[in-house]
Amino acid sequence: MLFFLRRLAAAIPVLFAVSVFVFGFVRVLPGDPARLVAGADATEQEVASARQALGLDRPIWEQYVRYVGASLKGDLGVSSRTREPVIDVIAARFWPTLWLTLAAMGWATLAGTFIGVWAGTRRGRWQDQMAMLFAIGGLSFPGFWLGLLLINLFSVHLGWLPTGGFDSWLSLLMPSFTLGVGVAAVLARFSRSAYVDVAAEDYVRTARSKGLRERRVIWRHGVRNALIPVVTLTGLEFGTLLGGAIVVETVFAWPGLGRLLVDSIAFRDYPVIQAEILLLSAEFMLINLVIDMLYGVLNPEIRLRS
C-alpha cells in the first residue's frame, strides 16, 4: 500500500513541472496574447482591457496560480478560433481519440506480446526469424503511408470500409490497426528478448529439474517473469500511440484530439493547443502511473523492498 502511495507522490512534482511548462509555453510565444484576443484592429484601450480581463497585468506567479486554479475548475479559456470554451471543444473530441487509442493499444499489446513470446520459444527457428522480420518491418513502416495504402485498398478499390470519419464501429478498424502496428512491432521484439533472457535464467533450469510440464515452465516461470519489463515498456509505448494518433487521425479524418491539435496549430489557436498538450501529457502520466503500480503487483521485490 505504501508503495502505491509513494508512486502517487512521485508523480506530483512531475505534474507540477509539466503545468509550468505548458503555462510558460504561451508566455514565450511571439506576439501579445491580449492583442490576439482583442483582435487585429483593436484600439490600445481595447487591448489594455483585454489584458486586464486575462489577468496578464498581474505578477507572473499570480498568473500561474490563477491558471492552475482555473484549470482545476475546468476553465481552460476560450478558443481564439471558434470563441467557444476550450473545455467544450476538447470534450467533443475526447471520446473518439480514447476509443481509437484503446483499441490500438489493446490489439497491439496482445498481439505484440504473444508473437514475441511465441518467437522466443522458437528461438533461431524459421518461425522466429519470420516473426522478427515482420517486427522490424512494422517498426520501419510509416503509419501514415500504411493508412493511405489501406484506404486505397479497402475503401477506394474494394469499397468495404469507409475512408474516414467516425460513423460506426466499422470505421474504427483501419485507424486502430494502422496506429497499433508500430507498437505491436516494438512489443514483439522486446518481449521476445525478455523471454529469451528469462529462459536462460537458473530458476527456469530449476523448474525443469523439478520435472514440471513444459507448459508450466514456459508460462509460470518464463512468461510471468518476462512480462515484468514488458509492462513498463507498454506504458512508454502508450506515448508513442498518443503521438501516432495525431498523424493517424489526420489520415482518416478522425474527429479526435489529434486532428484538433493539428488544426489549432494551423490557426494558431493557442488556448486549445495549451489545453491539449496539458491533457495529453496528463493522460500519458496517468497511464504510466497505473503501469507503475501494475509493475509493483507483478514484482514483489519492488513492492516489498521499500
Binding site: 513541472a17 503521438g243 496549430i265 493547443i273 501529457s281
Partner: peptide, 22 residues
Amino acid sequence: MRLCDVLFAFPGILLAIAVVAL
C-alpha cells in the same frame, strides 16, 4: 533526471509538435 522525467511526461511526437507550434 527530474528534467528528463518532465520531458518524458510528454509523448515524444507531442513534444516535437509543441516545439514546432512554438
